[in-house]
Structure formats: structure tokens, C-alpha cells
Design a protein around this nucleic acid. Structure first.
Lengths: 197, 197
DNA sequence: TGTCAACGGCACTGGTGGTGCCGATAGCAT
DNA sequence: ATGCTATCGGCACCACCAGTGCCGTTGACA
């Protein structure tokens, strides 16, 4: 009996970290939130629990880190001079990214975990939601300066409302987030704030 | 002898049931979601776990039942002929009810639990969210008939958006749901849909 | 080649959801 | 008033989890 064998060599450091994040996404996409456990991630990765706790002190930390690495680029806004078209393109693109089967399970897990943890909720808002709101607001302000939107409107609420409606569908409603929904949102927004010709 | 009331014979069960629901609200208001356990409810009520499982097959059932009993009345709409004032009054009143320290912890717990359970999510939407949306839509349609709102608008999205914005703040944003927020929402809505004089 | 931190495995504590079994008791019919 | 029976509380039990400690192994770098 030979000492086997073809078993994968034990990986360390950064390589393990990447693999653990990958496994986290994989598992989050397959199981329910209550089964998305540190122990389960460790089992699937063929790793001791210590190897996870050494990197992230809580499950929330792991999830937030995973999300952060996956989301970076999807949140940029174009400015072509047509604010409705830009918003439409941006909402379709970012909702597709956030709600993709790869990312949404982790995103939702963070949202759930944040309901128990004020510090995490603060980080979630600051690192993701506030960023999206601010980018939206920036684009709206630019449109306002360009005369596309009425000059005296407070655009803070609309930026929040546009985002909020999408999360409402994702978390609570049973209706899908599709282009029709986004067009419906934008119809309401433009009816309220488009500058009269 | 009248047709005997096989429906609600006041057994010791009913008294216990009321007490268990009361304890559930009490505990939900005090501890984090992850500590809102069947065992904890049983302990505080001085009851065996069986006494709970005999009534509700899962924690979700218990929470949904508790919520259902507590929320009934808060969801009615007035119709005074001034749609903005009616919506304002209704949103302030219903958000105060939903977000009260007594109810919101249980409501939020149901929302969290629903993320793991499609059937519960369907019931949550049908029994609460869809009811609120529909009442809002009914009031909007009435206003449309009365000539307060533009005649050709599709009011389905606005009804959803108005609700969605509040849940966004309650679950995700770190900003409060106050009268200023509700006025901001209504400003946007009225700017989009108020009939021109 | 040697060193040492990172690693995987195992065990342990204290908690959970959920079930089974027990003897006690409350409430109803008689 | 008495007895019958479902409900009750208590306890033990299973499988699983978060989180920590210990130990022998191993891989990467000096």
C-alpha cells in the first residue's frame, strides 16, 4: 500500500483565499441561507474551519469580502447626454449584475446578515447602496445642469426611489425585475422631472 | 341545545396560544433575529417546545401568524377627495404601525425567513405586501376617476414604488422613515401624475 | 536543506431545530 | 363527583452549527 497519491497538494495563502471565495459563491448559489455555513464552506473546500476563521472573523466578513471583489466594475455610469437612456442602460446593467445567479445569493445573504448586525448594515449601505445612489444622483445632477431635468427639483429622493424599487422586487415582491419594470420606473421619474420643452 | 361550537371551544389551548404569540412579540423586540428561536420562546413562556410545535409547524408559521393577528386594521384607506392628503395620512399611519417597536421586529423576521422559503415568501407577499399595494392602487384609481390624476397613466408602478421606497429604508438604508421622506415620495408622485388644472 | 507559519483533522463547549417518551393535569361528558 | 383523554411540561436524544484549542503535517521561502 503506497502512500498515496494524486491528492491535490495542500495550498496556502492567497491561492486558498481565492478558492474559498469561489466556493462561497458556489455554495451560496446552491443552498438556502440557513445552510450557507462556515462549516459547509470548509467541507466543500476540503479545509479546516481554522483556515477560514484565520481570514475572516465572522461569516459576515466572508460574505462582504466576496461581494466586494465581485461587484466593483458594474456600478459605473455613462453620460451620453440622454439621461433617460443612460439611466435605463445603467439600471438594466447593474440589476443584471446584482441579480445574476452568481452574485445575488451572496448579496442577499449579506442583506440578511446585516439585519442582525448594525455595523455590517452600515458597511453594506456605505460600500454598496450609497455608492449606487450617489452615482445615480450625480448623473441626475449632470442632467439637471444640462437642462434635461427641471432646475429646482430635489433629486435626492428620486435617486433613492429608483434604487429602492428594485430591491423591493428582489427581496419582497414576487414579480420579476425586467426591462418593463425599469421602463415603468423611468416613466414615472421622467413624468415628474423632465424639463418641459 | 344550539349547534355546539365545535369551532372554538375555549380549551386551555387558546389561552396558551395567545400567550405564546405575546411572548413572540416580546422576544422579537428584545433580541436579534438569530436569537429569536423556538427554544427561547418556549423558555420564556415556561413551556415545552412541543407546545409550540403542536400549534405551528415551523418558526415561519409562528411569525406569520403573529404578524397576521397584529396587523389587520392598519391597512385601510380613507377617501376624502384629496388623494395626496389621503396617501400622506395613510403612509404615515401604516409605516408607523409596521415600524413600531412592537411589530417591525416580527415583520422583519418574516421577511428574513421568507428569503429561505418560497412558500412563505409567496404568503408574505399575498397576505401583506400585495394587500397594501392593492389598497394604494384602489385609492389612486379612485383619484384618477375623480380627475385628480392624469387619466391615461398606468398607476401600477407608482403604487409599487411608493411601497418599495419605504421597505428600502426599513431594511437597507440607514436613513429614517419620517414625514419628510414620505413628503419627498409624494412630491415625486404628484409631479408625475397630478392632473394639470 | 532547514525552519516555521500555515495547514487539516479532531475534539470540545454551548447552542439550535426537531422528535420521542414520560407522568401530570385540566377540562369535558357522563 | 368521577372518570376519560387530549394537552401539558420535562427530559433525553439526534444531528448540526459557531467558535476555539491542540497536534502532527507540509509547503514555501531563506
Amino acid at each position: 500500500m503506497t502512500t498515496d497519491n494524486a491528492a491535490a497538494p495542500r495550498r496556502r495563502g492567497a491561492v486558498r483565499t481565492e478558492e474559498l471565495l469561489r466556493v462561497t459563491f458556489e455554495l451560496a448559489a446552491e443552498v438556502r441561507y440557513s445552510d450557507l455555513t462556515i462549516a459547509a464552506v470548509a467541507r466543500r473546500a476540503g479545509v479546516g474551519k481554522h483556515t477560514i476563521y484565520r481570514r475572516w472573523s465572522t461569516k459576515s466578513e466572508l460574505l462582504l469580502d466576496a461581494l466586494h471583489r465581485a461587484l466593483g466594475p458594474a456600478l459605473d455610469y455613462r453620460d451620453t447626454g440622454d439621461v433617460r437612456a443612460d439611466l435605463r442602460e445603467q439600471f438594466i446593467r447593474s440589476s443584471a449584475a446584482l441579480l445574476s445567479p452568481a452574485i445575488w445569493p451572496v448579496y442577499r445573504a449579506v442583506i440578511i446578515a446585516a439585519q442582525d448586525d448594525d455595523a455590517l448594515r452600515e458597511r453594506l449601505y456605505r460600500q454598496f447602496l450609497a455608492v449606487i445612489e450617489q452615482h445615480t444622483l450625480d448623473r441626475l445632477t449632470s442632467a439637471q445642469r444640462a437642462g434635461e431635468l427641471v432646475a429646482d427639483a430635489d433629486l435626492g429622493y428620486p435617486a433613492e426611489v429608483l434604487c429602492g424599487a428594485l430591491y423591493y422586487r428582489g427581496l419582497l415582491s414576487t414579480r420579476p425585475i425586467d426591462e418593463a419594470a425599469i421602463d415603468g420606473l423611468l416613466d414615472m421619474f421622467m413624468a415628474a422631472y423632465a424639463a418641459s420643452p
